[in-house]
Amino acid sequence: MSCSSNSPNSGGCGGGGCGSGSGGHEHGMDRRSFLRTSSVAVAGVAALAASLAPLRDLTDVGTAEQFFQKHYKKLTPEDMEKVLARITREVEKQYEVRPHVRDYKAMDGVEFVYALNLTRCIGCRKCVHACVAENNQSRNPEIQYIRVLKMPHGSMDPEKGDHNYTSELVPEKGSFYMPVQCQQCVNPPCVKVCPVKATWQESDGITVIDYDWCIGCRYCEAACPYFARRFNFTKPSIPKDQINPNMSYLGNRPRPQGVVEKCHFCIQRTRAGKYPACMEVCPTGARKFGNILDPDSEVSHILKTKRVFIQLKEEVGTSPRFFYYFDV
């Protein structure tokens, strides 16, 4: 009711001003209202431009080369060479270290399996930090691939675990310790849910991520039953003197902001025949790693001779390549 106005007039002015700007009749009121509408328009555009002011702080806008980079599996060897050269340049510029970046491929006849002896793990968390150092994880905000749970005797239910124990000395009586990291599932739910195939399982069983392809939707984080995936909520920060220069494309090269990462069994080490960093640092030898297709490997022995070994959350059907076992 109250909105009644002499519409042909008022509408006409407004429409002319905004629509085409050509409605300048030689009429005092029209000119005034034209000024008014255009001042709104100008102020609006100014506010629009100003609202984007934070983009001033956008430091590294990617190059066209980076933007149009193809999916890992579609890169030709020559493409990959260029990509590795670009990564080398970027690392050198940012961290003042000349890295050795390679694209390690899976070996034939190799399927990696991890086994962790819960009788021996003392919960010292050395694996957590060796992993951080080896894999160039962000120190702040902190990204860690391994979580060590302090568990009460008698339960394998991770929900009973303590993530933040600050004991003076470990191990403590009445507890055992269960480190959890990417379980490199045979049926990885994270791979299934990724909308852009930025994460996949390689022939040696390692589920990898193309950090240059991930769109950062974090659906994989929701899908993972092991809390194994980490997201770069902001630009990762790593002290220059702590960069590990031995890098791989699908592994420990520095990650950009806004993508997901996770344990990749130290691809830059294990595909070069070495043991992963978490195993090298374990003071008790609780961690075992190797090729399950080799009947003489340590992990083959464990799965053959140990009576009880556990795949965490067996009921979710992921079939991990990470086994927990006990002595005796």
């Binding site: 009644s4 519409s7 042909p8 509408g11 006409g12 407004g14």
Partner: peptide
């Protein structure tokens, strides 16, 4: 003409 488009929303005669 474009600039005299009536504004139907407001026209409650």
């Amino acid at each position: 003409v474009p600039d005299t488009t009536p504004a139907p929303i407001t026209s409650q005669v």
